[in-house]
Amino acid sequence: MALLRLQKVKKSFFGHKGEEIEVLTNIDLEVKQGEFVCLLGPSGCGKSTLLNIVAGLLSPDAGAVMVDGQPVGADRVGMVFQEGGLFPWLTVLDNVAFGLWVKGMGKKDARAKAREYLRRVHLEEFAFIYPHQLSGGMRQRVAIARTLAMDPPFLLMDEPFSALDTRTRRLLQQELLHIWQQTRKGILFVTHSIEEALLLADRVVVLSGRPARIKQEVTLPFPRPRDLRRPPFVFWEEELKSLFGEERDGQEYSQTFYDRALSQTAVLPAARPFVGRSV
């Protein structure tokens, strides 16, 4: 059964001179219960627009978006943003409890539940500090905990790890996979990193440049944790790169290049000073 179903979704915006700019054309997409789908596309291609539509923050010009067989509403999906979007006036704990209060849960119950979800992302001891006191990676973990606490059937993630350094990103990717395997929620994860998509996804959906349409879908029925140096991934990486390359802009290219350079040096023992080993 499809948890999320998009049918022929279209969206246009109007430019400065009143001209119509088509952002999405005929997007058909399905995500099943417990499926991890990565949406890969060049920046500015409309990924975020698509995500906002799925989140119920924007309505499509045409087509249908169904979550669990019902039309989408703002509170039916959980969304994790690139930069957290935490509330700076609330403690970490209250940030996680916020969504539960909004739903009408009592303060005490909400905090107890929030605490449980903070434990899941290993941030229990930071419950009473404020978001600015956390590192970027920790803030993203709070954002994930906050979304999970609402127990949505479905998670949307908009490049949640792209603002983090490589090491923190790897760590959070592992944590996310772990949480996902425990909860079996459907996940739609937007990224512009091929590596990230290959590491995480059951299925990679490649979008074209504007107007975005689905260019290709790649199924990756491989177990995790994955080693991207192994044959199926090396093959798919090349494949996706050639597919993606036509759309790639300079920034994207350097990002991917930087990722690759780092992941390659990480193989060398000398380049891993953070491995704690007593001599």
């Binding site: 703002a74 930069e83 509330f87 909004v102 609402m150």
Partner: peptide, 20 residues
């Protein structure tokens, strides 16, 4: 982003005002 985050958590218009 803060307003968007609150909206995805299902705040009503009044809650958006008073709590965000």
């Amino acid at each position: 982003l803060i307003i968007k985050a609150a909206q995805t958590m299902g705040v009503s218009r009044l809650q958006l005002f008073t709590r965000v």
